[in-house]
């Protein structure tokens, strides 16, 4: 383990701090979007009947069962310079989203959305509809009811979905590698950095990064468990 301490401050920044910060940045950004959009999608799946509901459910869940490389490949095809969406963005702005941290956020969002939606939909479905009906009879509209009755009563499930999504985003590897690459200082997340260090035979660095990742995961899970247990409802 002595060799670990031979990493200079410069290298420390490059090899450890940067992957850690970029991972957190991507995970926090994608989790925020997942939390907001996932809650809305879950509410509609749990509480509304609409045409093509099963299709929406399947599309949201698909990335959970697909290999991340397939998700990554589809994103490359869609978001690349010549892709259906990427092409339009490129023609308007001259900017390509591939190989940026933003596209890593999109990849993390897509792979973690199913976890959020599955958990939250189940939590919302478990809320007794009579609470919502009671709010309606008291003159409250559906949006108010969802925000102040349904979501607060489903908060344990929603929170669990957020934690799972965050963990999934932190651990995201395959899709991110395909859309964002492994550009040191730009897109090399913790999991990619561990893989690179291992490939390069730098086991000390791989060990250190793995220990940091495990510590962060353990801490966040412990804090989450404590917080959720303190909630009465």
């Amino acid at each position: 383990m002595d060799s670990l301490f031979q990493i200079t401050d410069d290298k420390m920044l490059e090899y450890i701090w940067f992957p850690l910060l970029i991972t957190l940045k991507i995970a926090v950004a994608s989790t925020f979007i997942v939390a907001v959009l996932g809650s809305i999608i879950s509410y509609f799946l749990a509480r509304r009947e609409f045409m093509g509901k099963w299709l929406a459910d399947v599309l949201v869940t698909l990335p959970m069962v697909l290999p991340p490389t397939v998700t990554g490949y589809v994103l490359v095809v869609l978001l690349g310079k010549n892709g259906a969406i990427g092409g339009i963005i490129y023609n308007i702005t001259g900017w390509t989203i591939l190989f940026t941290w933003q596209v890593a956020v999109i990849a993390a969002f897509i792979v973690s959305l199913p976890l959020m939606v599955k958990t939250t939909t189940a939590a919302i479905e478990a809320v007794d509809r009579d609470f919502e009906y009671a709010a309606f009879t008291l003159g409250r509209k559906e949006l108010e009811t969802a925000l102040f009755i349904t979501f607060p009563l489903a908060k344990k499930g929603i929170f669990a979905g957020i934690v799972l999504s965050f963990a999934r985003a932190v651990g995201e590897f395959g899709a991110t590698l395909m859309v964002a690459g492994n550009i040191p200082g730009r897109t090399n997340t913790m999991s990619i950095a561990i893989y690179s260090a291992f490939q390069a035979g730098n086991n000390e660095l791989a060990n250190l990064l793995a220990i940091i990742l495990v510590t962060i995961s353990l801490l966040s899970m412990a804090i989450t468990a404590k917080l959720v247990n303190s909630w009465k409802i």
């Binding site: 009906y133 009671a134 009755i149 409802i233």
Partner: peptide
């Protein structure tokens, strides 16, 4: 005013 069989008081 509607009173439900299970009361439906908001638990939170």
């Amino acid at each position: 005013g509607y009173v439900f069989q299970n009361y439906a008081l908001f638990p939170h």
